[in-house]
């Protein structure tokens, strides 16, 4: 939902970043306001996933230039933990498995870490379970998953639902969903999309990173950005997604970079 008077949540200016000396982001500009849903699309290797990891503070990437303001503070000054505690959330493309640590324990640790930052007391297991039960509905998740080890033996769809469950609990100001739609069948995709829609409010913002237009049938973005060669080449509305679906990415690359990949 685009509102002129909304607060700016995220502002990215000319961001450049590299991994092992190899430049990946080559000047990214983006502004995200409260209440908005953005989609970043682009071909493989365009830098979309890198952009999400750089925003969340992955230590393997080095920011070489530009600046990022998140809710008025310099995001690049914060480590991954403090970015999360400040209200940033990244839903992973490949969530990791943690054998022996129950999903419930993991969620409680993360939830209480966030509360502690907000100056609130820890929630005990009893109250926390009650809270989680309510949130399970968002992604139609079986309570049995709470007792299982984090992501261990989960199907692709279950892992993605678990990511959205974490988002539901942590209530981030900015949620970045990295290829959350990849590897999902249509039913799982609908459940995940439905969950995300329920979590979108006028006070938070969502950035969807996706390769395919398919997800955007279920989550309607306010802006669509096309990324290639480590830059956002063009921005449009949902009509752009349909055009991309029909014509692919080549015409955009040709228009902006003068090349056909």
């Amino acid at each position: 939902m685009i509102r002129e008077d909304s607060n700016i949540i995220l502002s990215v200016h000319n961001l450049t970043a590299e991994i092992e000396g190899r430049p990946i982001l080559k000047g990214v500009n983006l502004e995200v306001k409260a209440g908005e849903i953005h989609a970043i699309m682009g071909p493989n290797g365009s830098g979309k996933s890198t952009f999400s990891k750089v925003l969340a503070g992955h230590p393997d990437y080095t920011v070489t230039g530009g600046h990022v303001t998140f809710q008025g503070t310099d995001l690049l000054e914060l480590d991954a933990v403090n970015r999360a505690l400040a209200g940033m959330f990244l839903a992973f493309q490949y969530p990791i498995e943690i054998p022996g640590v129950s999903n419930l324990d993991f969620l409680q640790v993360a939830y209480n870490a966030r509360r502690s930052r907000q100056g609130l007391d820890d929630v005990d297991l009893f109250d926390f379970e009650e809270l989680v039960q309510q949130k399970l509905d968002v992604v139609k998740m079986d309570p049995a998953f709470l007792d299982r080890s984090v992501n261990e033996g989960f199907s692709g769809g279950e892992k993605k639902r678990n990511e959205i469950l974490q988002m539901a609990l942590l209530e981030p100001t900015l949620a970045i969903l990295d290829e959350t739609d990849s590897g999902l069948d249509i039913d799982a995709l609908k459940i995940v999309a439905n969950g995300v829609n329920q979590l979108a409010t006028p006070d938070n913002a969502i950035v969807l990173i996706t390769h395919y237009q398919r997800l955007l049938n279920y989550i309607e973005p306010d802006y669509i950005h096309v990324m290639a060669e480590g830059q956002i080449l063009t921005t449009g509305d949902k009509e752009l997604a349909l055009e991309l679906e029909e014509r692919g990415y080549d015409w955009i690359l040709e228009k902006h970079l003068g090349v056909v990949s």
Partner: peptide, 28 residues
Amino acid sequence: HDEMFYLQSRGIDADRARQLLVYAFAHD
């Protein structure tokens, strides 16, 4: 790094994240 990053991106500090991953390793 990816495992540590996953936990840290959930607001779990480095020491706690390390503990969880060590425990996960020893669990079986």
